[in-house]
Design a protein around this nucleic acid. Structure first.
Lengths: 335, 335
DNA sequence: GCAGTCTATTACATCGTTGTAAATGCGCCC
DNA sequence: GGGCGCATTTACAACGATGTAATAGACTGC
């Protein structure tokens, strides 16, 4: 049974509240008393009970981070940054893995009120803007990632359309004429994929290149295996592409792998661009050109938005920020 | 202000305790009452305050997972599995990123008593066995990963010596004669690296190959960049290796990358084996042969050990389990 | 020498929930 | 019809902390 304030108080011969005052650095405590109490604290190894404190204060000092999958590098890196930033601000982070399904994401949305977390950073995949608007609960929530529904919530993302254009333009610039896109999400509510697709198309139009639906391959999920399969499908076309824009890095790495097994040279025969700038792509062979969202900015902005909501210092309307991104050219487009 | 039991009670015209009984599925509640209360709950959107519940019960339903870095694939995958398993058992997981430093790891050790988590899964890098034994606090703790100090704590790991031997033997079997090791930790308390090194040496001895200290390269951390640098150092030797055993996959991928930039063929000129079976290695070019620890077993065993400690159903002595591992041969040793 | 001010300390209520034990009411049996 | 047992409901205390307001004492100034 761990010691509590009362145990310390008895040992130091003072009231419970005085101990509490010492613990919280209250000014009006005589030095002699403070020392005595402090000694008792040390001797007993007292540590405040955060649960009790939290019940009293209404704050838990815990944020939730809800992401689809922790082992997708982008989310792992984001999680790392969020946890670090939150720690800096004195907060702990619990991780919620939604799996990306609508049902589980709804649970997160509903679950917020289960006090215990002060606010939620949420990176949804499947939820529609309507789902988000339907939320009755106005608990502190910040949407994370590239998704930007016109909802009532704070949001931190990047300009997906612009980024996808940058990626595609880059392929055009190095001489690609038949440019494929891997990662479209047909039907699903995935705004991210839609935005990237629209940037891709805009870029084609701008370059005077035709839009060929055969070159747009959907991906069920965003893993290497999906990229591999999609690339294989593209290579089976009568007129295969000479450039591929993948909607994230694992897809691109899967595509690279597929090309390697077929003995197709990258970037000479096919150039590849990814998205997210996961660490893997920096050391793959060939190394992967990619769109690099400014992840540290995303993480810190999101955490600070959320803390401002929690503290009530945020403005009433939703805050939306677009974090910068850059194109990082590497070997997979180096020609 | 979210509704509480009292609000529901007033609305339903019953006592607070009756509402509590309904919420907790207590049997002796008249159906009519139960319905009335349930309606009030639904209308008000009542959700129990987990903090209060936790204060009352002494349990928070939260486990902590302390790992060095979330964006090292092995830890990300482990985290994913742990979070999933814990969720299955009705627990939430908070992530603690220690950075792998002794100081921060000590904080985790001390911090356990800061109630709020019911137990800790801890994957230490820098802590010594002495540090762990010095823990006065007997809060539920399970050590995770490959480290196996003779401490008083539950532990789930794999047989590192055996696994390292398997890896090295595999290199011997495909004809390597000068086999290097990347990832030694000189001086540090890293038991993992020591064990893998000893397995490596044992295997050399067994194969009748000389042990050449020049072929053992330490790594400051276990990232791709370190593997790259180590490989570069090995290639600069007058008599470079024809096989490399890397103590984890990122090191191996960094090494592969280095070899690729030098135009050295893998596996023909140099064969490479990694450790951990991160998803990256399955799709790298060449794909990476590696030691695959049974991560799902590690995660579920660890969580179950911890929950048993928490419930008090665990035996008194420390429990130790060695999860199985397998060698997964891929292209990087396919010759 | 006494009101007035300031410091240091304290008792008590409270955060929202649940365990304990007691109260209420009903049916049933002898 | 009085008593017993059971189902149902309740009041109250407690989990460990902290805010509020009150108290006791020390000191100022007139």
């Amino acid at each position: 049974m761990p010691p509590k304030l009362r145990d310390v108080a008895e040992r130091a011969g003072v009231s419970v509240k005085t101990v509490s005052n010492v613990v919280n650095g209250y000014v009006h405590v005589k030095d002699a008393t403070r020392d005595r109490v402090q000694r008792a604290i040390d001797e007993l190894g007292y540590r405040p009970n955060l649960t009790a404190r939290s019940l009293r204060s209404g704050r838990s000092g815990v944020l939730a981070l809800a992401v689809p999958e922790l082992d997708v590098p982008y989310f792992a890196e984001l999680a790392r940054l969020v946890v670090e930033t939150a720690a800096d601000r004195g907060y702990t982070v619990v991780i919620d893995q939604t799996g990306g399904g609508r049902e589980q994401e709804m649970v997160v949305l509903k679950g917020i009120r289960s006090h215990f977390v002060d606010g939620v950073l949420f990176s949804p995949l499947a939820l529609s803007a309507a789902d988000l608007r339907a939320r009755t609960d106005r608990a502190p929530l910040v949407l994370l990632g590239e998704r930007a529904p016109r909802g009532p919530d704070d949001h931190v993302g990047i300009d997906n359309v612009r980024a996808a254009r940058d990626a595609t333009e880059h392929l055009v610039a190095i001489g690609c004429r038949r440019i494929a896109a891997i990662g479209a999400q047909t039907g699903g509510p995935g705004a991210t994929a839609r935005q990237r697709l629209s940037g891709y198309r805009a870029s084609l139009t701008e370059a005077g290149l035709p839009y060929d639906p055969d070159l747009v391959v959907p991906a069920r999920s965003f893993h290497r295996a999906d990229g591999f399969a999609a690339m294989a499908a593209l290579l089976a076309l009568p007129d295969p592409p000479d450039g591929v824009f993948c909607f994230n890095d694992p897809l691109a790495l899967g595509a690279l792998r597929c090309l390697a097994t077929r003995g197709i040279r990258v970037p000479q025969d096919v150039a590849v661009v990814g998205f997210d700038d996961a660490e893997d792509g920096r050391y793959s062979t060939p190394s992967l050109s990619t769109i690099a969202p400014d992840k540290p900015t995303i993480a810190t902005t999101a955490v600070d938005f959320l803390l401002a909501r929690i503290d009530g210092t945020a403005p009433t309307g939703p805050r939306r920020t677009t974090a910068p991104h850059t194109l990082v050219p590497r070997e997979s487009t180096d020609r």
